[in-house]
């Protein structure tokens, strides 16, 4: 089915947008990580949310999520790995494709810069999608750079496909298969010639044929290269509209202050603007 609105991001901005759009009777799909993986879930105490001080971030997120679920919002847990504007919007999560008529970006801020060599070797050994490219690495040495909570799961998947996996991350992973070696490292660089030949991890070169870089989110500008930004934040107007037709943005991704109340307010506005966009669009 084609949703009226696809929301990328399951934090306060995304959930507020989803609730507001359901209030206008639009069908809404939220694609995002589990709310437990939101940076807000780690906040011990939030005291500046109007009328409801003293709650933990996790309590707030759970209440937001419940509200959205009760309003009939649909959820897909996962990471949007690619996006295409084509008669509306298509979003890929793993091997699934979802379609929507309007798009709201609420992915939060991507706090991780790219590694040296990462962009240069994209498609020549660097990959962001185990489901897509795993089969091309059967029998080969691959490194999974684990920067997301589902990365161990993806590493296990690659290993079962027949790749020889090494897992590299700054923290010990949870749920990694016992047969997969773990290397603790934070400073990384992709090395290669025509294609990837290795990953330098804290100064030590690990030879490999492929590097899967698995982050919590794919940056919106990687999903939508024509998206305009300013000082690293998505550029929006008062309606939370971006420069791309039918695409709105809300929350931390549009700039400071990185606060729940600001995210919720923007999510609400973005959703109403998206509804207005849909209502004015001629039926195809």
């Amino acid at each position: 089915m084609t949703y009226d609105i696809i929301v990328l991001g399951s934090g306060p901005a995304g959930l507020a947008a989803a609730v507001a759009a359901r209030g206008r009777d639009k069908s809404v799909l939220v694609i995002g990580n589990r709310w437990q993986d939101s940076p807000l879930a780690k906040a011990e105490r939030v005291d500046n949310y109007l009328g409801l001080p003293g709650r933990t971030g996790a309590e707030m997120l759970e209440a937001f999520y419940q509200h959205a679920a009760e309003m009939g919002v649909e959820f897909v847990v996962g990471k949007a790995i690619s996006l295409m504007a084509w008669n509306g919007f298509m979003v890929t999560v793993g091997s699934q494709v979802y379609e929507g008529k309007a798009l709201i970006l609420a992915p939060g801020v991507v706090r991780q810069a790219k590694y040296p060599g990462e962009e240069e070797y994209l498609g020549r050994g660097v990959s962001y999608c185990a489901t897509c490219d795993g089969m091309l690495y059967r029998g080969k040495q691959v490194i999974v750079v684990g920067r997301s909570s589902d990365a161990p799961h993806e590493a296990n998947y690659l290993q079962r496909l027949g790749a020889h996996v090494t897992y590299v991350s700054p923290q010990p992973p949870q749920g990694l298969d016992e047969g997969i070696p773990f290397v603790k490292a934070g400073k990384l660089a992709v090395k290669g010639e025509q294609a990837v030949t290795g990953l330098e991890a804290d100064g030590v070169l690990i030879p490999c044929d492929g590097v899967f870089v698995l982050r919590q989110t794919v940056a919106p500008t990687d999903l939508l290269p024509t998206l305009e930004t300013e000082a690293g934040y998505i550029k929006v107007d008062r309606r939370m509209a971006t420069n791309v037709e039918g695409v709105f943005a809300a929350g931390d991704c549009t700039g400071t202050p990185l606060q729940v109340s600001k995210a919720v307010g923007e999510g609400h506005v973005a959703a109403l603007s998206a509804c207005e966009y849909l209502d004015q669009k001629p039926e195809q």
Binding site: G123, G125, C132, A195
Partner: peptide, 26 residues
């Protein structure tokens, strides 16, 4: 050397002239 899909490769006179990796607008 296709190691990531989709990869779109352009050829002319029997030689590769350009390649695009990943989903892109038309």
């Amino acid at each position: 050397g296709v190691m990531s899909i989709p990869t779109v490769i352009f050829f002319k006179d029997g030689k590769e002239i350009e390649r695009k990796v990943g989903v892109m607008p038309g």
